[in-house]
Design a protein around this nucleic acid. Structure first.
Length: 123
RNA sequence: AGCGCCGGCUAUCCUAUCGCCCGCCGCCAAGCCGGUGGGAGGAAAGUCCGGGCAGCGCGAGCCACCAUGCUUCCUAACGGGAAGGCACCGGCGCGGCAACAAACCGGUGACAGCAAGCGCCACAGAGAACAUACCGCCUUCGGGCAAGGGUGAAAACGCGGGGUAAGAGCCCACGACGCGUCCUGGUGACAGGCGCGAUGGCAAGCCUCAUGGGCUGAAAGACCAUGUAUACCGGCAUUUAAGGACUGGCUCGUCCGUUGCCGGGGGGUAGGUUGAUAGAGGCCGUCGGCGACGGCGGCCCUAGAUUGAUGAUAGGACACGACAGAACCCGGCUUACAGGCUGGCGCUAUUU
RNA sequence: GGUCGUUUGGCCGAGGGGCUAGGCACAGGUCUGCAAAACCUGCUACUCCGGUUCAAAUCCGGAAGCGACCU
């Protein structure tokens, strides 16, 4: 099942600060992807970010994060399997850096690229 | 039916699949899980006001600072609301050639006080506030005057008469304006009258008067577990007077006091729980009130996250979907907003 | 979530009721064989909407933009 429960979301303030300070970063437009090795019970913890500077209204930021979560939820399984086979776990931040409101199907294609990049970087 | 003005309500819907948050039930308990129910707004926004709630040793007086500003009422409170007064604007309109009163209808108004004091009023102009004299008027040639011209946003209250050499609230009538232990009506603002009196404007200039205000703000605060100080408390020894605290300042009053040792005590940081969702709550009926609103009775429970929940896909309907997403809560204000429904008033045209 | 500040030509920046300084930049001219420098001239502004006032960049109310602080 393509679920996205609370355990797979990145919630720890301490891990987030460490991620921003020491994490790897690469750009897969329209995202800036940051990740770091972590010790958790699930293979991958993810947080979504939409910057207030670019998107003034809370409605727009909410929509970007919802679409991002939905795309990740439906495409995450290859990444989970790859990490699981190595016994590793990572923490990831998906920061939306595009200038315009995304469209679901196009965003899905980019998310495939993000997943592929993460698998390659952690194999 | 059309146009204009002023309000009120509403804010796409349905089906299937995959997901998110919370409550309850089941599995011995918990979690995964299974079942079941609930899940953003009229502005959730801006943070412009008011209050609840919480913390900060206490109190009194004066000053400073801030806010409000026609009256009465509503309210927990308000800078909000209701009704009324006054002013201005618009409409209508008897009559009238027309302009346009009164009354009526609607809208708008930071609407206390420059006859308490100070300050400011560019340019132009004689003069902008203890005034002044260019043209002008009068003259006994010493001078007197401010009506008329001209300047300006504004010119020493307006207009008519008396008066005078010419003039002037110098005097009078009418009118504008301010005041009154005054009279009448009204709870009152105010209106009408009587009497007295002054005369430019500006208080969203300083200010005066009246009323109100302690400060901070859920990132407040409380608790648990981990963990252990330099906070804090008590005792003993030492010091005796400077100093400090009381939330912007001063005064009064009150309190604390320097260092060392001993004992008690349990801070920061990271995590969790709580604060935190049933309330000045909503709806209906009824009674009181012009109304805002209040009393009584009945019914209802309606998000509660904590990196922060409502989305995606497919199909269908039509008016083709605006502004926009809770973060302690409530009452207002302001701002944004496609469409739909609806109430009142005015005018125009047609029909009956 | 809460608390503040700021907005004046292309850029920096003064002015706090009476025709909006100054500097840099830009354009034209003088000078020069050409340019630089210097000198002269010009151009482009008070974030927006209302209100107070005779008069508003300035005072008052509202909106918008930009920025800062508190964990």
């Amino acid at each position: 099942m393509n679920t996205f429960p609370k355990a797979e979301r990145l919630c720890s303030r301490r891990v987030i600060e460490k991620l921003y300070a020491e994490g790897h970063r690469c750009r897969v437009y329209p995202y800036s992807v940051q990740w770091i090795d972590a010790q958790s019970e699930v293979a991958c913890q993810v947080m979504t970010v939409a910057p207030k500077r670019r998107f003034r209204h809370a409605v727009d930021r909410n929509r970007i994060k919802r679409l991002t979560r939905e795309c990740y939820r439906t495409r995450k399984q290859p990444l989970i399997d790859a990490l699981g086979s190595q016994g590793r776990s990572i923490a990831v931040a998906l920061v939306y850096i595009g200038a315009e409101m995304p469209e679901y199907h196009k965003l899905g294609q980019r998310m495939d690229k993000v997943i592929a990049t993460l698998i390659e970087a952690n194999s």
